[in-house]
Computed example of a mutant assay.
Amino acid sequence: MPKMRNPNSPHSRYKGLLELPWDHGLPVPDMPSGREWTEAEREQWRQWWSSPQAAMWDESFIPTVAVMLTYFGKILEGTATSTHQMEYRHLAGALGLTAEGMKRLGWAFQGDAQ
């Protein structure tokens, strides 16, 4: 049986994670103009910008999150190409919205880094 990982080891990749607050208290930015957003997209926008990860984003992330949202809409509609889906996965990781992305960025949810 393999040894259990020790997150307190000096060589642990889990040491020094930045804990993201569950409630960052930041306002949800306005959605970019230029297209009509569906209600599902509007709700997803609110969820992403209310997530703990959004504490690490500033207004420069608005276009990136909006592009990801267009891919999200295409996925929901069933019109997404494999490229759309691949870019969605890439952006989700880059923004820390996946477990792998959070780990790569050195983030953990508040209370999970112990």
Rank of each mutant, 00 (worst) to 15 (best):
R5V: 09
P7G: 11
N8F: 15
S9K: 09
S9E: 09
S12F: 15
R13A: 13
R13K: 13
K15C: 08
L17C: 10
E19F: 12
P21C: 11
L26T: 06
P27K: 08
P29F: 03
P29I: 00
M31W: 05
M31R: 08
P32D: 00
P32N: 06
S33H: 13
G34N: 04
T38P: 07
E39V: 09
A40F: 11
E41R: 07
E41C: 07
E43M: 11
Q44T: 03
R46P: 04
W48G: 00
W48E: 00
W49H: 04
Q53I: 00
A55F: 08
D58V: 02
D58C: 05
S60H: 03
I62Y: 00
V67R: 12
M68C: 09
L69N: 02
Y71C: 11
Y71H: 15
L76G: 05
L76P: 02
E77H: 13
G78I: 03
T79A: 10
T79G: 10
A80C: 08
T81D: 04
Q85S: 14
E87N: 15
H90D: 08
H90P: 01
A92G: 08
G93P: 08
A94D: 14
L95G: 06
T98D: 10
E100K: 12
E100W: 15
E100L: 10
L105M: 13
W107H: 03
G111K: 11
